[in-house]
Amino acid sequence: MGLREYVVRRILQLVLTLWALVTLLFVLFRMVPGDPTTRFVMEYPTDAERQARIEELGLNEPLYVQYLEYMGQLLRGEFGDSTHYREPVSQLIFPLFMNTVVLMFTALLIAYTIGILFGAAMGWLRGSRFERGGIVAVLMARSSPEFWVGIILVWLFVFQFGLFPRSGIGGYGGELTMNFVDRYVNFDFLRHLFLPALTGAIVYLATPALLMRNTMLEVLKADFVEMKKAEGLPERTVLYKHAARNSVLPLVTVAAIATGAAMGGSVIIETVFNWPGVGREMVASVSRNDYPVAMAAFLLMGTSVIVMNFVADLAYLYLDPRVKYE
């Protein structure tokens, strides 16, 4: 099988996966007791107004009609209107998605930078007390759920030292803008970003650190290190060169998968820090029976996972010529 055929097949698979995800979600969210008008049932003076609203939302139609309509909408690239906010879902969710991406990207960037350096150091100092302590520390971080790390950081940096703001994404009363630079590149935003990003970084640090350490160990074992050393190259240069070459492949793969997964994992961090992101919105919209928003939020997170898995596979293909297209 050629590369092109492989990629085409993978893309078809991707579409199939997305379709299955959408269908699953559609069925799932219709299983929720009640409908978008439920929470306001006591606010409608009579049942007629409520029924009118249900009809307006098309929720009185048979389920398969609703499903076909929704699929049609998605194919046209629309998410429909939020039943709760009554505005287009895309308009609602885009800024939230941006917030999540910025947060998780920062967290992963920190996690992989520190993780790789730390892992390399652990491998380098194999058998030392530093290595043993490092492994325990890294596993300890990975053993802590996001909310626990978040709570500790809040307790320490907000309650005890008062160094960082508690929640939100910025100070209040400034200009509300969608311009990326104005929105995210300013001191106030970065101050708010610090704790949630650090929380993510701590939790995600373990994978690259342990991976890097293992690669380092393998490289150290290899004979060619001795050979190169015999050629007169300093040990450090040899090691870093080879460790780097050997670790790129697994690291890129793992990083791609982690990025996808992190989009879903942001739910907890966003909740702890009141971060206006897509994960928190998903939880909120599920509780309000706001299907279109919940679907869109879930779909965005699911798509991130699927696309990043795909990227990981492609990276694998590209970086490792030995891999067959199976």
Binding site: G162, P165, R166, S167, G168, Y172, T271, N274
Partner: peptide, 22 residues
């Protein structure tokens, strides 16, 4: 002169009041 309305989770908002953020 100006009124800013800030939504959020209750416990975080309470912390923000205590931290003089709102």
């Amino acid at each position: 002169d100006t009124l800013i309305r800030v939504p959020g989770d209750e416990d975080a908002l309470m912390d923000q009041i205590e931290a003089h953020e709102i």
